[in-house]
């Protein structure tokens, strides 16, 4: 056990270092924009007087390094400053939207992970059959179509021609879980279609790679049925690569939602990000980026830990 804790602590340390580097990049990328930040914000309305006033208000007269430390230490306490556009606190604006995005991603994950693993197992079981090829073609088609295109197709079929789901995912506080799920269904299906191919193909490939191993032959020679060989003997040993690809796709679900949220007018972080970029609302942009980065790093960390735990040599040391 001590070995595992050490490994996990090490990965956690790496994750924190990565996050620190990302925060540097986010801060200095904004800093590196040409001209004064106040000029950028004011745009057409920039006169020397307004720029100077705003610079003072935003604290831009202080050195960048000091502002970075200031920004980072408040961010660590959950305070991302206040929005330039409406002067409201960034965290306050972000919080409901972050919850919405997590809900959408969670729903998509709850659908896509079981489906893709089951499809991958079945494809491995019936390798080179019609099913295997069919699943391959369908998932590859869905992954190679852009999300917004998939989204519109789904709206066409499931909202316009057959009005089953709403085409605009309008969620608000006070909705029940059922209502919320129903409203979020179309974007969740879109995301599912986008991420399923990777996970399914990795599951299939990881299992098939193991089918030539001596312990699989042994299981066959013990007269175990095919499904048991795949599910009981191959799948547990194929978990490490599958977990990694699942985590990458989960991270994608959370960070790659921008387009989907726009298509379905879903009030999530992605939409806020796009709005804020248009409004040059830098504190909000920075906060969104930092949250995306943290999620990405956290999920990869979880994948690493999951992959480590799937190895019986580490779980049960000699």
């Amino acid at each position: 056990m001590i070995g595992i804790i050490k490994l996990v602590a090490k990965r956690l340390g790496f994750g924190l270092v990565t996050l620190f580097i990302v925060s540097l990049i986010i801060f200095w990328a904004v800093e590196a924009l040409p001209g004064n930040l106040a000029e950028q914000v004011l745009g057409q309305a920039a006169t020397p007087e307004t720029v100077e006033a705003l610079s003072k208000e935003m604290g831009l007269d202080r050195p960048a390094f000091v502002r970075y430390i200031d920004w980072l230490s408040s961010a660590l306490q959950g305070d991302f400053g206040s929005s330039l556009a409406n002067k409201r606190s960034v965290s306050e604006q972000l919080e409901p939207r972050f919850f919405n995005t997590m809900f959408l991603a969670g729903l998509a994950a709850a659908m896509s992970i079981p489906i893709s693993i089951i499809l991958g197992v079945l494809a491995a079981l019936w390798r080179d059959s019609i099913f295997d090829r069919g699943a391959n073609v369908v998932t590859l088609t869905s992954i190679s179509s852009p999300e917004f295109f998939l989204g519109y197709i789904l709206i066409l079929f499931l909202a316009v021609q057959n009005p089953i789901f709403p085409s605009i995912s309008n969620v608000s506080e006070g909705m029940t879980l059922g209502e919320r799920t129903f409203a979020t269904m179309l974007p969740a299906i879109t995301l599912t279609l986008v991420v399923i191919a990777h996970m399914m193909r990795m599951t299939r490939a990881a299992i098939i790679a193991l089918l030539a191993s001596p312990y699989i032959e042994m299981a066959r020679l013990k007269g175990e049925p095919r499904w048991k060989i795949i599910v009981v003997h191959a799948l547990p040993n194929a978990l490490a690569p599958v977990i990694n690809v699942v985590a990458l796709n989960l991270a994608y679900l959370i960070t790659g939602v921008v387009l989907v949220e726009i298509v379905f007018v879903y009030p999530g972080v992605g939409q806020l990000l796009v709005d804020s970029v248009q409004k040059r609302d830098f504190p909000v942009v920075q906060a969104c980026c930092l949250i995306f980065a943290a999620t990405y790093i956290l999920l990869n960390l979880l994948a690493d830990v999951g992959a480590i735990l799937s190895n019986p040599r580490l779980r049960h040391p000699k």
Binding site: P214, Y215, E217, R220, L221, K222, G223, H233, N237
Partner: peptide, 19 residues
Amino acid sequence: RGARIAYVAQSAAASFNPA
């Protein structure tokens, strides 16, 4: 297989499922 005819492989280390 397994019931009436059984098999013992060359490398037990590789033929036992590690999981």
